[in-house]
Simulated scan of single mutants.
Amino acid sequence: MSVVGSFFIVRLDWRRYGLLYLITVISGNIICYLFVKVGFYGFDPQYIPDKSIMPFSAIATLLPFYVLVGVRYSPAHWG
């Protein structure tokens, strides 16, 4: 659902929202990876596929969707 929602928001202005989506995906994964490596938090391995240390797909879909919704429907202008 977050991928479909993100698609409809990015479709409105693909340059601005597409860039925001990519920045959020990259920075979210980097920050999450650093926090896991430092030991601030961890994930239960039985819920993560392929014995990964973190859920890359969830971070790449849910977090950017929340950011896009927050920026798109914010009452204040972000310019």
Rank of each mutant, 00 (worst) to 15 (best):
A60G: 05
M1H: 11
I26A: 01
L63I: 13
I31F: 07
S74C: 14
L62A: 13
K37W: 02
L62N: 10
I26G: 00
C32K: 03
V10G: 04
L34V: 03
L19I: 05
Y21R: 04
A60S: 08
V10Y: 06
D13E: 15
D13S: 13
W14K: 15
F65Y: 15
F35S: 10
G28L: 03
D44H: 14
Y66H: 11
A58Q: 12
V69N: 04
D13C: 12
L68S: 05
F40P: 07
A76M: 15
A60N: 08
L68I: 04
L12D: 15
V67G: 09
S6F: 00
N29Y: 01
S74T: 06
F56A: 12
Y17V: 01
L20V: 08
I31V: 03
V67K: 09
L34H: 02
V38A: 04
F56R: 09
F43E: 12
F7P: 01
G39K: 08
P64Y: 07
S6L: 00
R11A: 11
L34T: 03
V71S: 00
N29I: 04
V10R: 06
L63Y: 10
L22N: 04
G70Q: 08
F65C: 13
V38W: 13
S2H: 15
G39V: 02
Y41P: 01
F65V: 05
F65P: 08
F8Q: 08
G70N: 12
D44M: 09
P49D: 09
Y73E: 01
L22Q: 00
I48R: 09
S52H: 07
S57N: 08
Y73N: 05
W14I: 15
Y66C: 13
V71L: 00
R72E: 01
G39W: 10
S74Y: 12
P75C: 14
P49E: 12
G70Y: 04
Q46L: 09
G28S: 09
I53Y: 15
V10C: 07
V36I: 04
K37F: 01
Y21N: 08
G42S: 09
G70F: 07
R16A: 12
V3M: 05
V25Q: 04
Y47D: 10
V67C: 10
Y33N: 06
D50S: 10
V10H: 02
R16W: 13
T61R: 09
H77W: 13
T61C: 13
I48T: 12
